[in-house]
Amino acid sequence: MDSSTTWEFFVGHVSYWLFIVLMMTGLYIVVAKGNFVKKIVGLNIFQTSVFMLYISIGKVDGGTAPIYPVDLNIDPDVVYSNPLPHVLILTAIVVGIATTALGLALIVRIREEFGSIEEDDIVEIEQGIARDENERYRNATGNRA
């Protein structure tokens, strides 16, 4: 492979790699951070970078936005980008905000029940509840279990 094709390959793919780096940033936030609001923001970043990857597939060199002139006299020389990814992502964004709202609503409820939105705290509280229940069960069965 001579150097000019390697360079072409690099230029053609470097944006995909940037999107993947962004995606992984989002994934890291979701996995490593304990705060639920932050996790939702991380999910949003992940989502947006997936959208970028998807839209970049529909891009055509020298193309323009897929909107015709109003009189529908189409110049055959004009290249239009692929409209299909745009449609899919358009709906995905709105569904994404709706699910984000649902997630945030869940966080508000969690805060009201547990008094915290940190994963560590909630795990502790849940373990406490489980221990209490075990205790009660053991007492009820007369220490036979």
């Binding site: 609001v37 939702i40 923001v41 949003n44 947006t48 959208f51 970028m52 839209i55 970049s56 529909g58 891009k59 055509v60 193309g63 323009t64 936005a65 897929p66 909107i67 980008s81 990814p85 745009h86 992502i89 358009l90 964004i93 709105v94 994404g96 905000i97 984000t100 709202a101 945030l104």
Partner: peptide, 24 residues
Amino acid sequence: LDAVDVAFTEAAVGAGISTVLVLG
């Protein structure tokens, strides 16, 4: 990337509504 419709939605939804919701 020529996706004007998507850009429009992202600006309205991502920068507008979702910021308001997170702040709420």
